[in-house]
Design a binder for these strands. Structure first.
Length: 283
DNA sequence: ATTCAAGGCGCG
DNA sequence: AAAGCGCGCCTTGAAT
C-alpha cells in the first residue's frame, strides 16, 4: 500500500460514515493498529518519523468521562476532575468507601470497569461478566456508584426519557443520532437503542471536540506555511504529527493549547503529549 | 471472479 | 432472550 510518489502509506479518512460523528479510516485502517501488548507495540514501532523529524502524539485524557461530568453536572465527578484526580482511583474510593491512598489495585480495576461500562450503558449483568463476579455483587457496585454520583444516575434517566420523547439524542455541537428503536415494543431492540442513546452524546461530543481541534491546528499550520509541522493521523482521541526536530518543543505546547482549548467545558480538558522516533515511543 | 453475511479480532 | 458503544479487515462458506 506504499504510494510510489511519496514512498509512504496513506489512509483515507471518511467524515460521513459513523453514527456518532467520529471519522473512520480505510485502505488501510490506521485507527486499529495494535498497541495493547508487546507484539502489537512492535508493529507500532514501524511507524517512523523521517530523517531529522520526530513523531509527536497528543491524546485527550479521559475525554468521555470528562464529557459525562459536564453533561451530568454531577458534583462529585466535576470535583474529581477539577482537582486533577486519578478518576478511576477516585471512583474506587467513593464506591468502596476507602481513602484515596488505600485503594487496592483490584478496587481500581473494578472502578475502571464501572466507569467504562457507564459510558456504554452497561447493565449490572454486563459488569458481573466483565469483572467475573456474581450478579448480586455487581448490582451492589452499581447501586453504590449511583448513590455516590447521583447526578450521573439522573443524567442517564433523563437521556433515556429525552430520547424516547424526541426520537433522537444530540452532542454538544448539535449532531443528532436518530433512534428509531427507542420506543420499540421489542425489549431487546429498545434496550439496545437506550444504550446507543446514552453513549452517543459522550462519544459524539468527543468527536466534536477533536474535530474543532483539528480545524484550529490546521488554521495555525496554514499560517506558518513552512511544512515543519504536519498533522498526519487522527485516532479518535489522538492526533499524530510529524515535526522537525528543532520545532518539537514549541509545537508540542501549541498543539496541547489548541486541543485543550478546543471547547470550554465545566471540567478542564487534559492532553498528554509524547515524542519519539516512532509512534510507539511517542506514547 | 465477485458479492454477501457471519464470526473473530484489532483499535478508541 | 439478551445482556457494552463506535468502527474496518480477514477468513470462511455459500450464492451469484
Amino acid at each position: 500500500m506504499i504510494n510510489p510518489l511519496t514512498g509512504r502509506v496513506h489512509t483515507s479518512y471518511h467524515q460521513a460514515v459513523t453514527a456518532t460523528g467520529r471519522l473512520s479510516s480505510t485502505d488501510p485502517n490506521l485507527q486499529n493498529i495494535p498497541v495493547r501488548n508487546d507484539e502489537g507495540r512492535r508493529i507500532r514501532q514501524a511507524f517512523i518519523a523521517g530523517k531529522g523529524n520526530r513523531i509527536v502524539a497528543a491524546d485527550y485524557s479521559q475525554i468521555e468521562l470528562r464529557i459525562m461530568a459536564h453533561l451530568s453536572q454531577d458534583k462529585g465527578l466535576l470535583d474529581a476532575f477539577a482537582h486533577g484526580e486519578d478518576i478511576h482511583r477516585a471512583t474506587a474510593s467513593e464506591v468502596f468507601g476507602v481513602a484515596l491512598d488505600k485503594v487496592s489495585g483490584e478496587q481500581r480495576r473494578s472502578a475502571k470497569a464501572i466507569n467504562f461500562g457507564l459510558i456504554y450503558g452497561m447493565s449490572a449483568f454486563g459488569l458481573s461478566r466483565q469483572l467475573n463476579i456474581g450478579a448480586g455483587e455487581a448490582k451492589r457496585y452499581m447501586d453504590l456508584y449511583f448513590e455516590r454520583y447521583p447526578g450521573v444516575l439522573r443524567y442517564m434517566e433523563n437521556t433515556r426519557q429525552l430520547a424516547a420523547s424526541k426520537g433522537y439524542v444530540e452532542t454538544l455541537d448539535g449532531r443528532r443520532l436518530w433512534l428509531p428503536d427507542i420506543n420499540s415494543s421489542n425489549a431487546i431492540r429498545r434496550k439496545a437503542a437506550e444504550r446507543a442513546a446514552i453513549n452517543a452524546p459522550m462519544q459524539g461530543t468527543a468527536a466534536d471536540i477533536i474535530k474543532r481541534a483539528m480545524i484550529a491546528v490546521d488554521d495555525w499550520l496554514q499560517q506558518r506555511n513552512d511544512g515543519a509541522i504536519r498533522m498526519i493521523m487522527q485516532v479518535h482521541d489522538e492526533l499524530v504529527f510529524e515535526v522537525q526536530g528543532d520545532e518539537v518543543e514549541s509545537a508540542s505546547e501549541q498543539i496541547r493549547a489548541l486541543m485543550e482549548g478546543s471547547m470550554k467545558l465545566d471540567v478542564p480538558l487534559q492532553v498528554e503529549v509524547g515524542v519519539g522516533e516512532n509512534w510507539d515511543e511517542a506514547h
